[in-house]
Structures are given as structure tokens and as C-alpha cells.
Design a protein around this nucleic acid. Structure first.
Lengths: 251, 251
DNA sequence: CGACTTTTTGAGTCTAGTCAAAACATGTGG
DNA sequence: CCACATGTTTTGACTAGACTCAAAAAGTCG
């Protein structure tokens, strides 16, 4: 039985710039700007520049001086860290409407992770100085930013727990569940992870090797829990995956 | 050759309350209050209550509604998460002058980790409402708080990297280096980790089992890199440990 | 001096990693 | 439209690092 071709359909990215309307929509929906008036959003919008990126292109590297806060308009961006030996660890994958670039280190320091365009994408950026102006002008935004960073911290702690005590199989299941909840697109019974997503990526997300990931994914696939192909994954039984992720070891 | 008795000397904790002077010192040195005038600190101090805890006593549990921000005055506090099967994952150990309790989730949500007194300690606490008042009154504090949370996020990401790609031996070396830098007390050539600190704790910090930790620690000890006993560790060759932590695997 | 906890040691097992090679998918240019 | 070049995924055989279970040894405290 032949495998289906990739069902992932990449969103269209305007080769020039994102439209003004779209920019306003994205900026206005950020968790820390959502409560502002549309006049304020229009004003803030003017502090952002846009920037088109082709897939695979690095946006900044770990250690570069942190000068901007970024915002994904369209496309997907991955955040990663490199080890001395060159292996990469995938910390997060961001979709439209998410921010990145050391929000909190504004006023000194470098980026603590590398950001790479996972697909063609349009990125909005604001300089640290301008962002600071916004925070001073709208103090309640600072509070919401704080909350947003706190949520990322909480997610990181959850990942630490998973890496500490779960098996590779459980971590892979958990990573797929996380992505399905974030980037999942419901198609009939199943949930397609809307993202070009290789075994290599999944390995870097779960601290495993490509080979091990391939074996586990094949097993899930044979059991009918997921369907996969080259650089895509679709989930047929989300509940089943969740059960595997939580399943407690004998002890 | 007989092992030395525990060289860890626990700080004295006043069984009643921390002195006013000490409270002001601790509060005034917090990274996010440091820049305020002493009048402001005195005023803020009045919003804190103190609370004495005996060793091993839980301060709050993961999931409890987050009502306070806490501050370690004296003693040590550990932050951990529990897995479904009851294993615990040690996220951080805090010393005097560090804060805990979901700073960023203020205004809804529960604690995302459990906090337990590692030694007898004195804890200062401020309610979410009062802390919010402080933030509104001193907006630049919010910015510094943001930076503080950002630093915790960065530390968590570093730990994710370590758990993802390093061996248990490397993770143990890295954890000891981290603790030495944070709680280390220089004694002649060596650095004593000022903390009652069991193999179990080290295991929970590195995602390993007690037995494996014991074997690795014995090896380090035999090589003269560290000295250890029951619930204490002292480091003789910090550089050596750092080298082990960074040492890249063949690939 | 016990009673208790923490640490160590040993033997056996298994999960996940390594290395190497084949199979497969995709896009390109002839 | 096919054949090839390229990147991705799979499979296999082997190894090793870390876990489990069990029991002994060593510290600590009343």
C-alpha cells in the first residue's frame, strides 16, 4: 500500500511584505497587546519593521547581541540551541502570532537560543529601545509580557520533567500531542500537524536519535495511532498518544 | 582512611522571626528592588509577612492556587515537580535572597511546582494583590522582574539541553558545578556545597537513579575530584568537573 | 548501643545509541 | 515523462550506558 504524499500545505507567504491589515491583526492579537485600543495598535505597528525569510534561514544565533524582539507573522520558526559537538536541541516551534527573541533581557545580553525559519515566513521586528518605549507608555503591557514569559518558563519545566523521567517513546508521544494541540489541523478523524517536520526535528525535540525516532514512529504508525511520510505527521488517535505519554512505568 | 564527618554547618535560623534589619537587607538586595530608595524598601517591607519553616516542610504544592510570592530570607528551599508515578524532579535549589512562587502568573492560576524547605528556614511572603500594588507603584520594578524571570527561563533551557544530549556523568558534573557556583563556600583549595544534599537530591536534579549517582560520585571521589559523605559534597577540582561536563562525545 | 537512614556494591537486563547500508521520496533537468 | 541526484527514512546488527532488584555497609542520632 503506497504511502500518501505529503498532505502538508504551506501557507502562502507574500514575497514582498505582509499587508498592513495582516500586520495589525497579528500585533493586535498578541497576548500582551490584545487589550489595547486599535489606535494604540496602529501606533505600535509603526515601530515594527517587516522582514521576509526563506525556509532554513537563520534569523539570529545564540550569543548574538539581543537587539530586537520578533514576531512571527506568517510561517513557522524554530528555536534551538547547539551543543559543543554540534548536535542541536529543539526548544520550541512557533507559529503565526507568537513572539521570540529575549524579551526579558532587553537592556543587555545576547540571545540565548538560535532562531531559524522552518518555512518561508514573514517576521515583524521591533528594536529593544522601541519596545521599551512601548512598555513605559503602556505599563500594563509589561505585566502581560511577564505573564507570557512565565508561561514559557512553565513549559520548559514540563519538558525538563519529561526528559528526566520518561522513556523516548513517551517523550515522542508527548511532543506529538503538544504539536497537535498547537499546530494541529483537524481533517475528518485525524489531526494533521501543519508543518514540514522531519524525524530529525522530532529527535532534536525529544533528545533522541533519528534512528530511534524512526523506529518508534514506525511502531505508532503500524498500530494505526499516526500516519506519517517524508517530513510530515498526522495523528489518528490523539487519546491513544496521550495515554502513552502519561503511562506510568512500573515504579 | 576514615571519611570526614559532615562539614556542612547550617546557618542559625531564629526560631521566631527574622530581625527587621535582616528583612530589609534581604528585600533591598533582590535584583528587582535593589535600585529603590531605602524609604521605598521600608514601605515594601511592611507588605511582607514572615514565616518560619522547619526542614522538609512543604511550603506549597504544585497545583495549589497561587496566592503569594515568596522570598527566602535564611535557609534553603527546593523547587520540584512530581510525576504521576511519584518520582520527583528537582528543578532548583534556592538560597537566601532568591524568590519563588509564580511571579508571573499573579492574577490567576496555580503554582506550577512544589516548594519544600530543604533546611530550617525563614520565608518572607507577599500576597499577589500587594505585589501587584508594588508593581503599579514602581513600574521599573516590573521590568526587572521580567528580566529575573527571563533568567530562570534561560537556565531551564540550558538544563533541557543537558538532559537532551549529555550522559549522566556529564549531567552530574554540571549540576555540581552549578551548585558550587551558587552555594559554594571556599575552604582552602576546595569548594564546599553548603547544603544538606543527598544522592537522592542529586539524582532528582539530573534525571538519574540513586544507584547510578552513587557510582558516578564514587568514581569522581576516587579520582580526587570531589570529597563526599552522607548528605554532603565538596569539590576539590572545579576545573576538572567543568571539563567533564563539557567534554564532547565522539560525535 | 541500637534503630534508622543513606550510601554502596553486585549481578542481570533492557533501552536507546552507534555504525553501516539499503530503501524510499522528491524535485530537476534532459 | 523518465532517470538521476539528493536528502530523508528505514532496517539490521551490535554495543554500552543506565536501570532494576537485592542485599550489605556505613553514617547519624537519640
Amino acid at each position: 500500500m503506497p504511502r500518501p504524499k505529503s498532505p502538508v500545505r504551506l501557507e502562502w507567504v507574500d514575497p514582498e511584505v505582509c499587508s498592513l491589515d495582516y500586520r495589525l491583526k497579528i500585533i493586535g492579537r498578541l497576548p500582551f497587546f490584545r487589550h489595547l485600543s486599535s489606535e494604540a495598535i496602529i501606533e505600535i505597528n509603526q515601530l515594527f519593521e517587516d522582514n521576509d525569510m526563506t525556509a532554513e534561514r537563520p534569523i539570529y544565533f545564540e550569543g548574538d547581541p539581543a537587539t530586537h524582539l520578533y514576531l512571527v507573522a506568517t510561517g513557522k520558526v524554530k528555536l534551538l540551541r547547539h551543543t559543543a559537538s554540534g548536535r542541536e536541541v529543539l526548544l520550541d516551534i512557533l507559529r503565526g502570532g507568537e513572539y521570540f527573541g529575549n524579551l526579558s533581557i532587553i537592556g543587555g545580553g545576547g540571545y540565548t537560543e538560535t532562531a531559524v525559519a522552518q518555512t518561508d515566513c514573514c517576521i515583524l521586528q521591533i528594536s529593544a529601545q522601541n519596545f521599551e518605549k512601548v512598555l513605559i507608555r503602556y505599563p500594563d503591557v509589561t505585566m502581560k509580557v511577564l505573564k507570557a514569559v512565565g508561561e514559557r518558563l512553565e513549559q520548559s519545566q514540563e519538558i525538563i520533567k519529561q526528559l528526566s523521567v520518561y522513556t523516548v517513546e513517551q517523550r515522542i508521544a508527548a511532543a506529538l500531542v503538544r504539536l497537535a494541540n498547537k499546530m494541529g489541523e483537524h481533517k475528518q478523524e485525524s489531526v494533521l500537524i501543519q508543518l514540514p517536520f522531519s524525524r530529525q526535528d522530532l529527535a532534536a525535540m525529544t533528545g533522541a536519535t533519528v534512528e530511534t525516532v524512526s523506529r518508534v514512529v514506525s511502531r505508532f504508525s503500524a498500530e494505526g495511532i499516526i500516519s506519517t511520510g517524508r517530513r510530515w505527521v498526522s495523528i489518528n488517535d490523539l487519546g491513544g498518544l496521550e495515554a502513552i505519554a502519561k503511562e506510568s512505568t512500573v515504579n
